[in-house]
Design a protein around this nucleic acid. Structure first.
Lengths: 138, 138
DNA sequence: TAACTGTATCAATATATTTAGTACAGTTAT
DNA sequence: ATAACTGTACTAAATATATTGATACAGTTA
């Protein structure tokens, strides 16, 4: 399903969370799509099931998936969680990274291009939710 | 000088690197400004000098500071290091975070505002280097 | 019932981080 | 020259975190 860097400084379960989050955000994994079970994915990746479970639990806590005992774990695009705090953190982090990029020589135009590219990634997964007012173009 | 979260999941030396990088990027710490010595900073923060040294070493490797034996460690705004790889990584990371932000409901306009805000942070530290073509305004 | 699912818990192991202590070399000011 | 600073290096021990391995229990599906 995806590759992991077992020697990375970054914990395996965190890599898993990040990759799955990206797949969900970019609508590669669709709403209610079933994720591989903790045991089969563990076997595929040659790691311990507990590590998968840890990643799934974190994803569920953050609202990206939901799990049902006996059935499996499924994608959840509708984040009805209390975003405000998380949202502020994400924006703050983006600002930091942007200032670093500018410092390193990236131009403002390049950053603007990144916005359109990011938007194209998520645009495909537009929901039917009328409360979603995300612009489709700049 | 700054606060650390000793209980954070993130290692102390990494927190130090991040904070100092931000201070340098945002021109709070000026070119050639002397940083506190590893021992005094360790005492101020009530942590081991080795931890400070590890942070300083990483900052020097990445070009943000330079250290002189017997004298001290100093801010280095002129990054003449081979950026290209690091630059690509930063841009990739920003794109990921942007798509996540969009997914969480942040609008494109808000992201554009973040660019201007980030630019204002670094704008104060504009160099005399004529090769720097960073826009001052959008 | 059998074979799946998620979930929980515990101990053992591996790895990473931090501390502690010591030492050496260069700088600065007295 | 000496004392008091600087950075740097190294080793050992302690601590924290991540991962594995094993086992168990509960719900689902056929």
């Amino acid at each position: 399903m995806f590759e992991l860097d077992l020697r990375s400084r970054k914990p395996i379960y965190e890599q898993l969370v990040e990759k799955l989050k990206q797949l969900i955000i970019n609508d590669v994994l669709k709403q209610d799509e079933k994720l591989p079970s903790v045991r089969t994915l563990a076997q595929q990746l040659s790691i311990n099931p507990n590590t998968i479970q840890k990643a799934y639990r974190e994803l569920e806590t953050k609202g990206y998936i939901y799990s049902v005992k006996g059935k499996g774990s499924f994608v959840n695009h509708m984040l009805i969680t209390d975003n405000s705090a998380e949202l502020k953190k994400v924006k703050e982090q983006i600002k930091k990274q942007m200032s670093e990029a500018l410092f390193l020589g990236v131009t403002i135009k390049e950053l603007q291009v990144l916005i359109t590219e990011a938007n194209e990634l998520v645009a495909g997964g537009e929901t039917n939710d009328p409360s979603s007012e995300r612009e489709k173009e700049i």
